[in-house]
């Protein structure tokens, strides 16, 4: 029995016999190797399931024992060992020398940027711009000293860090809360401090505040309010205010004291990372030159 194959009149190509609303499908056969390629991809997938963890079942790890976590660990280990020679150089080099060496400096800047984002930006801000209570690292005022060595010391031991004996520490007393000053005296001394930057609202109060300042504040902040880095006591005659420079903020400071805490990072970070952080912070606003 022979059949007549239906052919399309225009192209002369046989049809598949499928028709949808008058539209017929031409039969243009695929080559067989194409089909075999398709079967090969299925076989590849089956092989993949056997070799790699492909099934959503706990313990279905595949014959090769591959895990994404393991591969990531391997990559990290490889990167760590590749970075080691440079890190060793950083550990052996003082920050001042790192800054002078273009290669080390570029490396420390790149590594420091990442470490800063990981460990410092939470309080000090993404660009080191700080926040009320958290010092701006990009300006030119340093509470405890702004040389490279000072910055490194601060990162290593923190400020008032409870778990580090070498941590820098000092105390701004709670003058009003602890009864050392009356509320009126506090108002006078705040007016005096405001007058140092020509912002006093009450000249008489500011004059009355001068002896109060000399008696209570000058021992730490200095007679001319120039600050004292040994104590971490800030300058009061400039434009940079850690806890706010308006009258309300200053009254609060005098009344209830202040005492920010920064963790000590020596036990948590590699010494090379601390070096890189030092160099990166130096790049934010330029730290101070070391005393000659």
């Amino acid at each position: 029995m022979s059949h007549v194959v239906e052919r399309d009149e225009v192209t002369g190509t046989a049809t598949t016999g499928h028709e949808w609303d008058g539209i017929r499908e031409l039969n243009t056969p695929l080559p067989k190797w194409w089909l075999w390629t398709f079967y090969a991809t299925i076989a590849f997938a089956a092989l993949w399931v056997v070799l790699y963890p492909a099934l959503p079942i706990s313990g279905a790890t595949g014959l090769l024992g591959y895990t994404a976590r393991g591969a990531a660990d391997q990559d990290r280990a490889a990167q760590a060992s590749a970075a080691e020679p440079m890190l060793a150089r950083l550990r052996a080099t003082e920050p001042a020398q790192i800054v002078a060496d273009p290669d080390l400096r570029a490396y420390a800047m790149a590594g420091g940027r990442v470490a800063f984002a990981n460990t410092c930006a939470g309080c000090h801000g993404a660009g080191g711009q700080g926040a009320p209570g958290f010092p701006n690292l990009a300006d030119d005022e340093w509470l405890w000293g702004g040389t490279l060595a000072d910055v490194e010391q601060t990162i290593r031991h923190g400020i008032r860090a409870p778990d580090d004996d070498a941590s820098r520490t000092s105390l701004m007393p709670r003058f009003v809360a602890d009864g050392m000053l009356t509320a009126a005296q506090a108002n006078d001394v705040v007016e005096h401090v405001l007058s140092l930057t020509n912002r006093a609202t009450d000249a008489a109060a500011a004059r009355r505040g001068a002896p109060v300042f000399a008696e209570n504040c000058a021992s730490c902040h200095g007679e001319r309010a120039e600050g004292n880095r040994e104590m971490g006591a800030p300058r009061l005659d400039d434009q940079v205010w850690l806890f706010g420079g308006d009258k309300a903020s200053l009254l609060r400071t005098v009344s209830f004291g202040r005492g920010g805490v920064m963790p000590a990072w020596e036990k948590r970070l590699d010494p090379a990372t601390i070096r890189m952080l030092t160099v990166y912070i130096h790049s934010l606003g330029g730290t101070e030159a070391a005393p000659q």
Partner: peptide, 24 residues
């Protein structure tokens, strides 16, 4: 869309209309 009956003239057997061609 519906698949309709093959035309009378068409082969009842799809094997005469292979979907995969041997390489020439």
């Amino acid at each position: 869309m519906s698949r309709i009956q093959k035309p009378e003239a068409f082969a009842a057997d799809d094997r005469e209309q292979p979907l995969y061609a041997d390489r020439v």
